[in-house]
């Protein structure tokens, strides 16, 4: 298993795209965090350190991480190196496990680096722009997330991106589908459901990213949001893995 991890580590960091996307992620995280501090609160109230540190759970930041997540399988299929990988490591379950573990490590390191950037941003922000009282501003709406929630949500989002790439064997779809779902499609479904006099509420209640965001921002009226989101993440991952095990390389 160590060899699998070393292989994945070298695969990940030997292409420039990983470095670029990580850098862009940190820049966007810093800019989004700096916005409310330098441009005024926009009526949301005083920002807190907790609110500032939940910035990198925003979808705009996570898209950058999901690009790297999709590359775990997307580059392999696009350039045919999956055949080299599977010749070297014929046990496919180990390949999936190694990629998942390394994805977890990557997201953790990137998130911590993001917090470091936000810490720097907060330290140079105008005096008084960060308070210690009040709820602070969550960039996703609702309450700011706990740090562990930011980390778990980021990882879960990337697992969905990686799993969709396993299913579609298409790098672009692995990046675009979660983004479209979270930013446009789920919003449209909620809109149409509102016109259906409650007949489509069960669909709204089951939407993956709506539930994920509800869990992330601790919405009190959706106590099962975390479970529903976890079910979506697990289901997508299991389907993707099953297809990876079964299909020809």
């Amino acid at each position: 298993m160590i060899a699998n991890l070393v292989y994945e580590w070298r695969r990940l960091w030997s292409v420039r795209a990983t470095w670029i996307m990580t850098f862009v992620y940190l820049v966007i995280t810093g800019l989004l965090g700096a916005g409310p501090l330098f441009l005024g609160d926009g009526g949301f109230g005083t920002q807190t350190w907790k609110g500032l540190y939940s910035t990198n759970a925003n979808f705009l930041c996570l898209v950058m991480l999901s690009v790297v997540a999709s590359q775990f399988f997307g580059h392999e299929y696009r350039y045919g190196t999956i055949r080299l990988t599977l010749t070297e490591f014929p046990k496919r379950e180990r390949v999936v496990l190694a990629k998942t573990l390394l994805l977890a490590l990557y997201v953790t390191v990137a998130t911590i680096l993001g917090w470091a950037v936000l810490g720097v941003v907060g330290s140079i922000a105008p005096e008084g722009s960060i308070g210690t009282e009040g709820p602070g501003l969550s960039i996703n709406g609702g309450e700011p997330s706990e740090l562990w929630q930011v980390l778990v949500f980021g990882f879960a989002y990337c697992v969905i991106a990686m799993s969709l790439t396993m299913i579609t064997r298409n790098l672009a779809l692995g990046i675009v589908l979660p983004l479209l779902l979270s930013s446009i499609i789920e919003g449209l479904i909620v809109l149409f459901a509102g016109l259906a006099n409650g007949k489509m509420d069960w669909i709204v209640d089951a939407l993956p990213f709506a539930n994920g965001t509800a869990w992330l921002t601790n919405l009190p009226d959706q106590p099962n949001a975390g479970l529903i989101f976890a079910a979506w993440v697990t289901g997508t991952y299991l389907i993707g893995s099953a297809m990876f095990f079964k299909r020809d390389a």
């Binding site: 060899a3 699998n4 070298r10 080299l84 010749t87 070297e88």
Partner: peptide, 26 residues
């Protein structure tokens, strides 16, 4: 095994490509 002349990432250097492939056997 060598199955195709284009099975490599175009942006990963030849050296890095082989370093990656050498992981399993150290």
């Amino acid at each position: 095994a060598h199955l195709d002349a284009k099975f490599f990432h175009p942006k990963r250097t030849a050296y890095a490509h082989l370093r990656m492939l050498g992981a399993e056997a150290g």
